[in-house]
């Protein structure tokens, strides 16, 4: 069990709460809140992947610089699944109600 924390300087403020994914084996859940700073809080059952998480987040935020508080509960997702959930969160924000 590991707790990881990251911060970024991003520009596109998140305007509403978004929830994607599930805490199932091989998957993860993302709770995204509006905030003044970009902070990422990860709780994961797979230890030793800090470097990989940083790479995934770097790559995601370079393409989609969202500003907000990300709370992530991970249950062994591959980087591909992590990216899927992050981009789904990004799309959810762009949806017009």
């Amino acid at each position: 069990m590991e707790k990881l924390n990251f911060t970024y300087q991003n520009s596109e403020a998140v305007k509403k709460f978004v929830h994607v994914g599930v805490v199932a084996s091989g998957d993860l859940e993302i709770l995204l809140y509006p905030a003044d700073e970009t902070t990422i809080e990860i709780v994961t059952g797979s230890d030793g992947f800090k470097e990989v998480w940083k790479n995934v987040l770097d790559r995601f935020f370079t393409r989609y610089p969202l500003k907000g508080k990300f709370v992530i509960h991970d249950f062994g997702a591959t980087p591909g699944v992590v990216n899927l959930r992050l981009t789904q969160a990004m799309e959810a924000l762009n949806d017009e109600k």
């Binding site: 030793g48 992947f49 800090k50």
Partner: peptide
């Protein structure tokens, strides 16, 4: 190994 990202 830890530095290289070993889980354990």
């Amino acid at each position: 190994a830890s530095k290289q990202g070993a889980a354990k």
